[in-house]
């Protein structure tokens, strides 16, 4: 029983990470109707930037926020320079460009920061008051940080005019343009936000899985499974889906199938969700008008 509880709790902690990657996917999906394949690699790159900053003697939180800002600006620039000319292009061209970005970021992570596995410090050390038997301080801390991010996002979209404009641009770009919203810039903002969220996820997971250029590949898949499970148009669903996927992955890995097949869990989850409940657990049923 003790061990089982332990598995569930560490599953929940991983689930938060998957949830945040899912959240980033949902964010980009809602604002652009694209799925960014490079999301994971961009997050890894951001984490490397944070690592470098810390190696040069920056305090953790300073590096954390500077990285967020850099990721935001970086993704904004990428959207403006690389993706804007392709806004009207067919989906396949976009996918290919995303793949190109994925390859570039992955290669650059390895090139600039080399391929050795690095440890990444956690700001929440063991002397923290929440360090309990089931939950390490870092796990607790990362849950807290990500819930904070979620809250901030909610407040941003609900109560600020920029957030309202972004929602408008996503829901009905033509009408949004007519009322004076710069739709294209809203897309860029969405990219920036998603990159920042991804960076948070990267910095939170790096102390657990260690930092290397391929850190996020599996996590991106789990994130996608979480997003689908929760319903791809529902941010809260994405986070909940993340928890479910995290717990399932851990419990199944520990008791049923062993650690070798953990990635297959994501695949099976994706296929099963799509076959049995294509809109996810909390997604809207979309009816398209012919």
């Amino acid at each position: 029983m003790e061990g089982f509880l332990h598995q569930i709790f560490s599953g929940l902690a991983n689930g938060v990470i998957y949830g945040s990657v899912a959240l980033a996917l949902v964010m980009i999906y809602q604002s652009t109707h694209h799925i960014n394949f490079a999301q994971g690699e961009m997050a890894t790159f951001s984490t490397f930037v944070a690592w470098t900053l810390m190696q040069h003697g920056m305090p953790y939180w300073g590096a954390f926020f500077l990285t967020l800002a850099l990721s935001f600006v970086g993704a904004l620039v990428i959207q403006r320079v690389v993706l804007r000319p392709l806004e009207k292009a067919p989906a396949l061209n976009n996918v290919i460009v995303f793949i190109g970005l994925l390859l570039i970021f992955n290669a650059c992570s390895g090139w600039f920061f080399d391929h050795t596995i690095k440890s990444f410090d956690s700001p929440f050390n063991d002397s923290w008051m929440f360090d309990t038997k089931y939950f390490s301080a870092h796990q607790f801390g990362s849950v807290f940080v990500l819930l904070l991010v979620l809250l901030a996002l909610y407040l941003f979209f609900r109560f600020t005019s920029v957030g309202l404009a972004m929602r408008g641009a996503a829901q009905n770009p033509d009408s949004a343009r007519l009322v004076g919203i710069r739709v294209s810039w809203m897309l860029a903002l969405g990219w920036g936000l998603a990159a920042a969220i991804g960076a948070v996820a990267g910095m939170m997971i790096a102390p657990i899985v260690f930092l290397d250029p391929n850190m996020m590949l599996g996590i991106l898949l789990y994130g996608f499974a979480a997003a689908l499970l929760g319903g791809i148009d529902n941010p809260w669903g994405a986070v909940l889906g993340g928890f479910i996927v995290g717990v399932l992955e851990n419990v199944l890995g520990a008791y049923v199938i062993g650690t070798e097949l953990k990635l297959t869990v994501a695949l099976v989850l994706i296929v099963v969700t799509l076959t049995l409940k294509p809109n996810g657990l909390f997604g809207k049923h979309v009816v398209t008008r012919v």
Partner: peptide
């Protein structure tokens, strides 16, 4: 891989 990515884009 980076060159490859740039070629693709």
């Amino acid at each position: 891989a980076a060159i490859y990515g740039v070629l693709l884009i």
